[in-house]
Measured scan of single mutants.
Amino acid sequence: MIVFVRFNSSHGFPVEVDSDTSIFQLKEVVAKRQGVPADQLRVIFAGKELRNDWTVQNCDLDQQSIVHIVQRPWRKGQEMNATGGDDPRNAAGGCEREPQSLTRVDLSSSVLPGDSVGLAVILHTDSRKDSPPAGSPAGRSIYNSFYVYCKGPCQRVQPGKLRVQCSTCRQATLTLTQGPSCWDDVLIPNRMSGECQSPHCPGTSAEFFFKCGAHPTSDKETSVALHLIATNSRNITCITCTDVRSPVLVFQCNSRHVICLDCFHLYCVTRLNDRQFVHDPQLGYSLPCVAGCPNSLIKELHHFRILGEEQYNRYQQYGAEECVLQMGGVLCPRPGCGAGLLPEPDQRKVTCEGGNGLGCGFAFCRECKEAYHEGECSAVFEASGTTTQAYRVDERAAEQARWEAASKETIKKTTKPCPRCHVPVEKNGGCMHMKCPQPQCRLEWCWNCGCEWNRVCMGDHWFDV
């Protein structure tokens, strides 16, 4: 396979590697080409510095992935760790964990309700045991953590790749202090920090972006993250068709209702045909949960890209028209025109101005929308079919299609509260000796007794199943 190397943020060049090629071997190839010592090179990928003893497969490097290699003399205490030698983080029983690669970060837990604080980093599902597709590297999971809308060759929703760059020099040479644990960490600028490894760059702020994971991409090709779309790892039924499908869209209502993408497309087109989208002054033209839940309008309007190009163009047109109407304007009634106009409040005669090729020149009556006339309008008909009709959803289907309910059931079956801080902690095999993952707590306690870890627990039921 081919990976592209950008040395000291210059133009990239291809390097041929195998899945079992080590990072140090990659350094040696680059060092020979650039005429520099291999031990002064640092390989940066997806916000993480890659260790010498890791392989291309370990690092989730795919065909035509772009890695950054910078030349920086080692500072005291760094060289041993980078070589894969006596790194205290690798000691058996050590409590410190390697910062998780962005290629394996899962933010789907952050669609849980606000009262489930902490689960994004504490609760991990076991539903990723799908067998890898044919042709994928051994052991590589097909679980997708992110979804994007690819405006490039795909023109559809695709699995996405999370990447990070330095907000100062805009190069992907920043190593994160810690990985993101929720969508806010990724979507809110300057929320996460790190250290830029580019020479002479003092940058410390992280800037995240997404790429389409279905095809090789260049540095400049980015895609918009659709953070309401998630892999259906909890096997929730769709609120409309009641099938279990994946991926799904999880509405931001209190129940976190789930809808499959085909039904979401149908829901949007139906509402669009009836012009029953909601115009929100802050958000724009949007839709609420299909069950009509309060405070559930979709905030990231790129989710409506699921409509496809033709329907999305209609959505944008109707949204612009609705904006004009909300501002007190009118639409030209001549067939084939429909231009938005903003006449004076007491102006009865409205002319669709033909300047700049935008208007048709038609003069019409503001009251009856017919060709302009003197005197009273002959008839004014009330528009028919403008009443909002509820999208029919079966109550039982709505009850079963809740992301929140599956989460709470998982928590109930696989977790116990920490005796000190009461945060839910998952036990997935292993011994009875637990350690609270909350940095402010870190209590060592017994899963069996529910009390602080002691010699009695150690001698009596340390390794009970």
Rank of each mutant, 00 (worst) to 15 (best):
I2C: 14
V3K: 03
V3M: 07
F4N: 10
R6T: 03
F7Y: 07
F7Q: 02
F7I: 03
S10Q: 06
H11E: 05
P14K: 05
P14I: 02
D18K: 10
S19V: 07
D20R: 07
D20A: 08
T21A: 11
S22A: 06
L26N: 01
L26F: 07
K27H: 02
K27C: 04
E28T: 08
V30M: 03
V30W: 04
V30F: 04
K32D: 07
R33Y: 05
R33Q: 07
Q34W: 12
Q34E: 15
G35Y: 03
G35I: 02
P37L: 06
A38D: 03
D39N: 09
L41V: 01
R42M: 10
V43P: 00
V43N: 01
V43H: 01
F45K: 08
F45P: 00
A46D: 10
G47Q: 03
G47R: 01
K48C: 04
R51L: 13
N52A: 05
N52H: 03
W54D: 12
V56T: 03
Q57Y: 06
D60H: 13
D62Q: 15
Q63M: 10
Q64A: 13
S65T: 05
I66Q: 04
H68F: 02
H68L: 00
I69Y: 00
V70S: 02
V70D: 03
Q71Y: 05
R72T: 14
W74D: 11
W74S: 13
G77E: 11
Q78Y: 14
E79I: 11
M80P: 13
N81S: 14
G84Y: 12
P88F: 05
P88Y: 06
R89Q: 14
N90P: 13
A91S: 09
G94Y: 14
R97K: 14
E98I: 08
P99T: 12
P99R: 14
L102K: 12
R104D: 13
R104C: 13
V105N: 14
V105Q: 14
L107N: 15
S108E: 14
V111I: 12
V111F: 11
L112G: 12
G114E: 14
G114F: 08
G118Y: 03
G118W: 03
L119I: 11
V121G: 15
V121L: 11
H124S: 14
T125L: 05
T125H: 12
S127A: 14
R128A: 13
K129S: 13
K129D: 10
S131N: 12
S131V: 12
P132Y: 10
P133K: 09
A134N: 09
A134I: 11
G135L: 12
S136Q: 12
S136N: 12
P137M: 12
A138S: 12
R140N: 11
I142E: 13
Y143V: 09
Y143P: 07
C150L: 00
C150K: 02
K151C: 11
K151R: 14
K151M: 13
K151Q: 13
K151E: 15
G152M: 10
C154K: 02
Q155D: 09
V157T: 05
Q158R: 10
Q158V: 08
Q158N: 09
P159L: 06
K161C: 11
K161H: 09
L162D: 01
R163P: 02
Q165F: 10
Q165I: 15
C166T: 00
Q171C: 11
Q171P: 01
Q171V: 07
A172M: 11
A172W: 05
L176C: 07
L176R: 02
T177R: 10
T177W: 08
G179E: 15
W183G: 01
D184H: 05
D184A: 09
P189N: 06
N190R: 10
R191W: 04
M192E: 02
E195N: 11
E195R: 12
C196G: 01
C196E: 01
S198F: 08
P199L: 10
P199V: 06
H200F: 10
C201Q: 00
P202N: 13
P202M: 12
G203R: 02
G203D: 02
G203L: 02
G203A: 03
G203P: 02
T204C: 05
A206S: 04
E207Q: 09
F208G: 02
F208H: 01
F209I: 15
F209N: 11
C212P: 00
C212W: 00
G213L: 05
G213Q: 07
A214R: 07
H215K: 01
H215S: 02
T217M: 10
S218M: 08
D219I: 07
D219C: 08
D219A: 10
K220R: 10
E221W: 06
A225G: 08
L228D: 04
T231R: 11
N232T: 00
R234T: 05
N235G: 14
N235L: 06
I236E: 02
I236G: 02
C238K: 01
C238T: 01
T240F: 08
D243Y: 11
R245C: 11
L249K: 01
V250P: 01
Q252G: 12
C253Q: 00
C253T: 00
S255I: 04
R256L: 06
R256F: 05
R256W: 02
H257P: 00
L261K: 02
Y267V: 04
V269S: 04
V269G: 03
T270C: 09
L272C: 02
D274Y: 03
R275Q: 02
Q276G: 13
Q276A: 15
F277T: 01
V278Q: 11
V278R: 07
D280F: 06
P281S: 10
L283K: 07
G284W: 02
G284T: 03
Y285Q: 02
L287F: 01
V290Y: 06
A291L: 08
G292T: 05
C293N: 01
C293T: 01
N295F: 06
S296L: 01
L297E: 05
I298E: 00
K299N: 10
E300A: 11
E300P: 14
G308Q: 05
E309C: 09
E309K: 08
Y312S: 04
Y312M: 05
N313K: 13
Y315K: 02
Y315Q: 04
Q316A: 10
Q317S: 15
Q317G: 10
Q317A: 14
Y318M: 04
E321V: 06
E322I: 03
V324T: 14
G329M: 04
G329H: 03
L331W: 04
C332Q: 03
P335E: 05
G336Q: 07
A339Y: 15
G340L: 04
L341R: 07
L341W: 07
L342E: 06
P343V: 10
Q347L: 11
K349I: 11
V350K: 03
T351I: 14
C352M: 02
C352W: 02
E353G: 09
G354V: 07
G355Q: 12
G355W: 09
N356G: 08
N356S: 12
G357P: 08
G359C: 10
G359W: 06
C360P: 03
C360N: 02
E367M: 11
K369N: 07
K369R: 06
A371D: 13
Y372S: 08
G375F: 06
G375K: 09
V380W: 08
E382F: 13
A383H: 12
S384L: 09
G385M: 09
T387C: 10
T387V: 12
T388K: 12
T388G: 12
T388D: 13
A390N: 14
Y391I: 07
R392Y: 12
R392W: 12
D394W: 04
R396I: 11
E399N: 13
Q400K: 15
Q400E: 15
A401E: 02
A401T: 02
E404A: 09
E404V: 08
A405H: 10
A406W: 09
K408V: 12
T410H: 10
I411A: 09
K412G: 10
K413M: 11
T414Y: 12
T414H: 13
P417W: 13
C421P: 00
V423S: 15
V425Y: 07
V425G: 13
N428R: 15
G430M: 15
C431F: 04
M432W: 04
M432Y: 05
M432R: 03
Q438N: 04
Q438C: 05
P439L: 10
Q440H: 15
C441S: 01
R442D: 07
R442K: 14
W445V: 05
W445F: 15
C446N: 00
C449L: 00
C449F: 01
C451G: 15
C451W: 15
E452L: 15
W453M: 15
W453I: 15
N454V: 02
N454P: 01
R455Y: 15
V456W: 15
C457L: 01
C457N: 00
C457P: 01
M458V: 04
D460V: 04
W462T: 03
F463Y: 04
D464F: 15
D464R: 15
